[in-house]
Computed example of a mutant assay.
Amino acid sequence: MTRVLTRKGEATRARIVAGAATEIRERGVDEVRLEDVMAHTGTSKGQLFHYFPDGKEELLLAVAQYEADQVLLDQEPMLSNLTSWPTWLAWRDRLVERYRAQGVKCPLNGLLGQTGRRAPGAQAVMIGLMVRWQDAIAAGVRHMQATGDIGPDVDADRTAAALLAGIQGGVLLLLSTGRTDHLEAALDLTIDSLRASAVGRRSDERHDDD
């Protein structure tokens, strides 16, 4: 049964999750104990288990959701407003900067490893993140199609899926190599292809007029 929290309860739970996320980023998921989270957030053991009855596993899953949400928040306000090429390029730069700053330590990757990648809760976190991310990119493609900046024949959903796959592949290679080259290539080539789709369409229209 889903627990209904008061506004104060929601704020306390959010404070515990944010504090746990900070501890995990600083120490690593394997090193953080519930006592560390309690000390960081000023909460008692009773409070912690009130909000997370299943203990550390439930808390880690909540932190994984927090980190997944943060992935998208870090891309704002551009991700929700991919309505011009300057915004697309600013989003591209923000994304590269984010992962360059993150480096080879990915909190979400470590957390989902701890909660079990195949566990329903962990899968739901990742699926939710990818669906929201892909939907935002697809919405940007459709907007640019409406303004004529991307060709109408481009499949917005498949393009968003391919771009997201390229981003994830680039991030995976970053975790292995410490370099953002592959991430940048995936972004740049896809954006260049989208821009070219409109140019090619206009060129065809000019030839038809002739």
Rank of each mutant, 00 (worst) to 15 (best):
A138E: 01
G166K: 05
Y99V: 13
A186Q: 05
L163C: 05
L172W: 14
R15H: 15
A21C: 07
V199E: 13
R202E: 09
D153F: 13
M130P: 01
E67Q: 10
M130K: 01
R117C: 13
T190Y: 01
V125W: 00
S176F: 13
S44D: 13
P120C: 04
T83E: 08
D155F: 07
D153I: 13
L34S: 05
L175M: 14
W88H: 00
R98Q: 15
R132F: 02
T87F: 05
T147G: 06
G140Q: 01
T22H: 05
L189Y: 11
T83L: 03
K56R: 15
F49A: 06
L59S: 08
A160G: 09
T83H: 13
R202A: 14
R179F: 08
H182V: 10
C106P: 10
R118V: 11
D210Y: 09
V96A: 12
V96C: 12
P107F: 00
L174T: 04
I191W: 09
D153P: 07
P53K: 15
P77Y: 08
A185G: 00
L187W: 01
T87N: 10
T12G: 04
G128E: 09
D210T: 08
A11V: 12
M38Q: 13
W88S: 03
S193R: 10
F49K: 04
P77N: 11
A124F: 11
K45I: 10
G169L: 05
W91D: 02
A62K: 00
G116M: 07
G200L: 10
A138G: 04
S193N: 07
V154E: 01
V131T: 14
A162P: 04
T115Q: 03
Q168V: 03
E57F: 02
R132G: 08
T41S: 14
G103R: 06
P53S: 10
R132D: 12
D54N: 13
Q134R: 10
S176P: 01
Q70C: 03
A124Y: 10
I127Y: 10
A165G: 15
D188Q: 09
A62Y: 10
Q102W: 00
V71E: 09
N109M: 14
R195E: 12
N109P: 00
E67H: 06
A11T: 09
D157A: 11
E58D: 07
I167Y: 00
G166P: 05
L5N: 07
M38A: 08
A186E: 03
R132L: 11
D155C: 02
A39I: 03
E58R: 11
Q65M: 06
V171A: 09
V29N: 08
R98F: 14
A161H: 02
D157N: 07
G148F: 11
I127A: 13
L112D: 08
A146Q: 12
D181R: 13
K8F: 05
W88L: 02
V125A: 00
T159S: 05
P77M: 07
A198D: 06
R195I: 12
P152V: 04
D192E: 06
T115G: 02
V29S: 08
H182R: 07
M1T: 14
V32S: 11
I127Q: 12
L73G: 06
L34D: 07
H182K: 11
L163K: 02
A18G: 09
T177D: 13
A146D: 14
L61H: 04
L174N: 04
T147E: 14
G166V: 08
A119Y: 11
D209R: 15
W91L: 14
Q102C: 04
